[in-house]
């Protein structure tokens, strides 16, 4: 992979959304570490009842980096690559859906965050990514 814009697009091909989701996860993890819970992270209200903020941050960073590694391998791990991508996408779908729920399950007066549609769409994108990781693994080789 070259570091040009064309090289990046050619390398990730139709998996650019997966790469974006992985980098978003890493970014969220870094943000939570930089400004630890309890900050005003309304999207995490539902999750911090069960797990700590640090756990969420490191979960994001770990899953994000695993997904980026699997995507960077780009078909060189034909057996494990799709599984790693699918597990990462599944974890992402679960956590995005819970964050979406945390934002919308409040009174209408508190609906001030614009993240709800983002998390909702991300949930669907992750589910589609799971399908693509399995369905395309034998079809397009490096471009699966």
């Amino acid at each position: 992979m070259t570091c040009s814009l064309r090289g990046i697009v050619h390398h990730f091909n139709n998996r650019i959304s997966e790469a974006a989701a992985a980098w978003i996860m890493v970014g969220l993890g870094i943000q939570i570490i930089a400004a630890p819970v309890p900050s005003d992270y309304r999207a995490l209200n539902g999750l911090i009842q069960y797990v700590s903020g640090d756990f969420i941050a490191w979960f994001f960073i770990t899953v994000g980096f695993v997904r980026i590694t699997a995507l960077a391998a780009n078909g060189h791990w034909p057996t494990y690559g799709p599984w790693l991508r699918s597990i990462g996408s599944g974890a992402g779908a679960l956590i995005w859906s819970q964050m979406f729920l945390s934002l919308i399950a409040v009174s209408p007066d508190d609906l001030t965050s614009l993240g709800a549609p983002v998390y909702f769409v991300m949930t669907w994108v992750e589910l589609i990514s799971i399908y693509r990781a399995f369905a395309m693994r034998d079809r397009h080789g490096r471009f699966g």
Binding site: S86, G90, L127, I130, Y131, F134, R137
Partner: peptide, 15 residues
């Protein structure tokens, strides 16, 4: 979780 299961099995079948 059902969505994950459905997409994964459908993906396996279509592979």
């Amino acid at each position: 979780m059902y969505g994950i299961y459905a997409t994964a099995t459908r993906g396996q079948r279509d592979s």
